[in-house]
Write a protein that binds this DNA or RNA. Structure first.
Lengths: 283, 283
DNA sequence: CGCAAGTTTGACGCTGCTCAATCACTGTGG
DNA sequence: CCACAGTGATTGAGCAGCGTCAAACTTGCG
């Protein structure tokens, strides 16, 4: 046991702190260091870009509010969304080692984004091993999410793909307290975005949404999605949230470069807080 | 300039050395350290597994010969192959931080695999920053490959998916000298494997292969694939090899945790060596 | 030699795409 | 304040790409 540790569920206003604290317990001074890092976020408007494919990456992006998406584009105009960056998410920190982005990052909603030079992140991680560990686990979860998306697009039916995506987004937003008590949350995605995520056309996404609505599994209103029956939706999608590693700390391993000296425990379910200004997409 | 550096194209028998040397020039003592690490590979038979989903990962895998595949499975039996591990490839080194694999790794051919405890890799990387850098760049390339697969499965037509996969495999095998002078190489994949990779059925894969053969783009014989017209195939697939970062060293960056003190240059095209015993799949 | 696993082929039909038209919403300029 | 344009949602008709089913056929292997 370390005296500095604060074991209570981390209800910090900073979604990055909340997210990291979910996996590795953070001490007050560690949270302060993160808050310091996030003191000057930049405002970005929906539809603008953070980086383009082919650009040389300059910094790492940390989402405070709003959504971004990583995507790749084909010459014929087709777009595949590779991943979402939700509040509390951070873009790939190893990206500083390459000189050409192989994908673009764009804003799906108005957003507050912290631009962090790679060196700063590494300094932070050197000073605070627990933060390093938490960041690494977050990166692992992001990769696992990509694997799950590949499974989703490659092997599931259209209806399942959409359902699975909704379950995942709900689970991820829940970690940062952006789900309200009625399983309802802001989803700043057009049906075109959903289509480019799931490898479908917007028209077919529309039909699948209608079916989910008809079957009383979801409802949509003003850019908010409400999941009416999470259990049924998850069953339909074959959703299992294990891959997100969002259920609290994992056991410590001995043979690790990055060690944290304490083993934590799950902090119970995440209490919900009122969500911040996130652009409401159109349905 | 460092005197220890050997700038000539690295024709080591060790595919891991060849691959890393492609991106970051390695000195003789660094290559020796890697050879030392690989001195006791284990033999594995086609069809056996290295780890299963749900297992606690014990070590990292380095492929010396043969192919492995990472995959996820659905309850209904459908399988999605997430990635291939080719000779010279290494499985995720950060995997030691989690206690449950979210995917399985199985052998697609008989193979020689080095099982490396995570600690050993970290020791190696601490001692040799250039190796650390090379391993990190390899990890980045693997992630980029996954992104490209998502694009492939999500947005391209069946014929293109197969063509794209062939182009990618050819490029990756070329780095470790496993492509012979007629653009021919061992492809230890059944049509079922191809189907599970590209999100199609084996029957439809079969039809696409027939078309590629009819159009004189490829030919198959005894588990070997020959690309008859790489340019046409790549054009058809929309293949651009940039994402593989296999074209020699990238420029050095200042703000990096891991720095190598020299900047290398491309080592020209990879000369081809005779390939080793790789199980010949069935076509 | 005979089984097992994988390939090949065809017929058929469903899932999901294309094309096209209409509607709803929002922001803009006159 | 309203006309208008732009973006996205919705819906339908038609069809094509690809999956499903089924039946040979081929090859490797015990």
């Amino acid at each position: 046991m370390q005296p500095l540790l604060i074991r209570a569920p981390d209800q910090s206003a900073n979604p990055f702190v909340r997210k990291l604290g979910r996996v590795v317990p953070l001490a007050a001074h560690e949270r302060a260091a993160i808050d310091q890092l996030c003191r000057n976020p930049r405002q970005h408007a929906r539809g603008t870009s953070l980086v383009h494919e082919g650009d040389r990456p300059q910094s790492i992006f940390l989402m405070l509010t709003g959504w971004a998406h990583c995507y790749k584009q084909l010459e014929n105009g087709r777009r595949q969304i590779i991943s979402y960056l939700l509040p509390g998410d951070i873009s790939d920190i190893r990206v500083g080692s390459i000189d050409k982005m192989d994908h673009s990052i764009g804003l799906l909603s108005d957003a507050e984004v912290v631009h962090i030079p790679a060196a700063e992140i590494f300094t932070l991680m050197d000073r605070f091993p627990r933060i390093e560990r938490a960041v690494m686990l977050a990166a692992l979860a992001r990769e696992a999410t990509m694997r799950e998306w590949l499974l989703n697009v490659g092997q599931r039916f259209a209806l399942q793909r959409v359902a699975h995506l909704f379950c995942e987004v709900r689970a991820r937003l829940s970690v940062v307290g952006l789900i309200d008590d009625k399983n309802s949350f802001a989803l700043p995605l057009s049906q075109i975005d959903l289509a480019d995520t799931t490898g479908m056309t917007a028209m077919h996404v529309n039909r699948m949404l209608r079916r989910l609505r008809n079957d009383k599994l979801i409802s949509t209103h003003k850019g908010r999605l409400t999941i009416l029956s999470l259990e049924t939706l998850a069953g339909l999608a074959g959703f299992n949230k294990d891959y997100l590693h969002a259920d609290g700390p994992v056991a410590e391993k001995p043979n690790l470069k990055v060690l944290s000296s304490v083993s934590g425990h799950g902090s119970g379910d995440c209490a919900e807080i009122g969500e911040r200004r996130v652009y409401a997409g159109i349905f």
